[in-house]
Nucleic acid binder design. Structure first.
Length: 467
RNA sequence: GGCCCCAUCGUCUAGCGGUCCAGGACGCCGGCCUCUCACGCCGGAAACACGGGUUCGAUCCCCGUUGGGGUCACCA
């Protein structure tokens, strides 16, 4: 069996969006799974719209997702001599010809065809003229007039096209530059791509490409057209459906593994399993469980999956991902062990890293600002006494283990006749500024005696001043 | 409009002729746990688009209808 070589060929005209990331993922997983290679190719033949900045953004997004390519990136603009060589071959073998029909004229043919029977195609005016290269000539591929071309698709099965429905498409523009359908084929042939996994919006291009492979006498690759990703309204995914670029998800605090998990699961399944680590994906992915129908991108499910990945991630490994979000809030988390403890209290209650960083603020604050409503309701004069009692108990403690802390609270409960809840809430506000936080004992333990006593003391004076 | 693809809960999906009065997940609604918020756990509502076949038997096979999507460039 020959080596599996897949590819991901984005055009650098914008950011890497989730749909593109998904096809990159499928190609990457398939190559890795089969022990093959994954190549990255930048399709920048559209000189007007391609930018280096976009290419860089795509690399960055792929790197963040930890999708590593084995070869490339290859830029098509650097391969023009190869394309020219192949165009020459087609011209010489009679598979291509010059055409001097003006764009307007061709457009006219299409309109007429569309109005008549719906068939919008070039009518072949110059097909047998034997024209040479001229001022405004394009080069067209001489497609067969009859017969049939079939895609043996790995996910969709056989798809049959009537050659009569295809037209003589342009392979080189009047300025001599080659067009998409042609360069893809030349690249895929010369890069020895064995398997083409791409969105099914490409199926209608495929017969043209197959014809090109045949005209060039090249062996056909395996095609696998995966269904597209749609927006909530079932229309093609676009910015109005919300965040679409991979980078945006990184900025919102998603873990790359969570995005990957979600994207792969959208269109592929492995029984009932929903949660996959990167390793499991690598181990279990296969083309034959890719579905045939388009899927709707569901941000809620992605968010839930992100929460699961955050929860499952070793705190140690989470740190590098969390760090940027901490910095954003000017939190200097230099103490690694302290940070790990902080993460342990937060990972079950954070759906994103941004959320986690925000929740971590009180652990690092020098001066706490109370949530207004919380302070008003819970730090009243009446709590001053139990709080003072608690301060005394805590100060007398040798250790700050959960057990000791519980003992201290129990003593205050006994002395005041208050239930834990009545004490814990004011303490929570005193220590975190909010009514919702990790368990109160955990918070006290992590903050440590000094900070806890300080905050409790501050809270007492605040409470005394309230009506 | 032509050509092509698709069709199980709102969404992602399991299902590869009987095990399905259809299973899981997200979301939603109840409840439990509980120092708050989460987490976790338990329970609930929620789907085989329709019509014909084939078959002893169809969610699963075939045809049609309907619906959705894609594509028809000197863009990729």
């Amino acid at each position: 069996m020959k080596e599996i070589i897949t590819r991901f060929p984005p055009s650098p005209t914008g950011y890497l969006h989730v749909g593109g990331a998904r096809t990159a993922l499928f190609n990457w997983l398939y190559a890795r799974k089969t022990g093959g290679k994954f190549v990255l190719r930048i399709e920048d033949t559209d000189l007007q719209r391609s930018t280096q900045a976009s290419a860089d953004a795509i690399f960055e997004a792929l790197e963040w997702l930890e999708i590593k390519w084995d070869e490339g990136p290859f830029f098509q603009t650097k391969r023009f001599d190869i394309y020219l060589e192949y165009i020459r071959k087609l011209l010489d073998s009679g598979h291509a010809y010059y055409c001097d029909c003006s764009p307007e004229k061709v457009e006219e043919m299409r309109k007429k065809g569309m109005a008549a029977g719906g068939k919008a195609k070039y009518d072949g005016t110059c097909r047998e003229k034997g024209l040479g290269k001229g001022e405004n000539t394009v080069i067209r591929f001489k497609a067969p007039l009859s017969g049939t071309t079939v895609i043996e698709d790995a996910v969709k099965g056989n798809i049959v096209f009537q050659n009569a429905d295809l037209d003589d498409f342009v392979i080189a523009r009047s300025d001599g530059t080659p067009t998409y359908n042609f360069v893809v084929v030349v690249d895929d042939i010369t890069m020895h791509i064995s398997t083409i996994i791409r969105g099914d919006d490409h199926v209608s291009n495929t017969p043209k490409q197959i014809l090109l492979y045949k005209a060039l006498g090249a062996e056909l690759p395996t095609f696998a057209h995966v269904p597209m990703v749609l927006g909530k309204d079932k229309s093609r995914l676009s910015k109005r459906h919300g965040a679409m670029s991979v980078t945006e998800y990184r900025k919102m605090g998603f873990l790359p593994d969570a995005l990957i998990n979600y994207l792969v699961r959208l269109g592929w399944s492995h029984g009932d399993q929903e949660f996959f680590t990167r390793e499991e994906l690598l181990e279990k992915f296969s083309l034959d469980h890719v579905g045939k129908s388009a899927g709707v991108f569901d941000p809620d499910k992605l968010l839930a999956l992100n929460a699961d990945h955050i929860k499952a991630c070793d705190p140690e490994k989470l740190i590098p991902h969390l760090r940027p979000f901490l910095e954003e809030l000017n939190i200097e988390a230099d103490d690694r062990d302290y940070l790990i403890k902080v993460i342990r209290t937060l990972n079950a209650r954070s759906k994103t890293l941004a959320e986690m960083a925000a929740s971590a603020q009180f652990y690092y604050a020098d001066t706490l600002t109370y949530d207004e409503k919380a302070a008003k309701k819970l730090l009243k004069p009446a709590v001053a006494e139990p709080l003072q009692l608690l301060i005394r108990e805590l100060e007398s403690l040798e250790n700050f283990t959960e057990k000791d802390l519980e003992g201290a609270f129990v003593k205050v409960m006994e002395a005041t006749g208050l239930k834990l809840g009545k004490i814990a809430q004011p303490v929570r506000v005193a220590l975190t500024g909010k009514t919702a936080s990790p368990g109160i004992f955990e918070v006290v333990e992590i903050l440590g005696k000094e900070k806890v006593v300080k905050r409790l003391t501050d809270a007492v004076s605040y409470a005394m001043k309230q009506e």
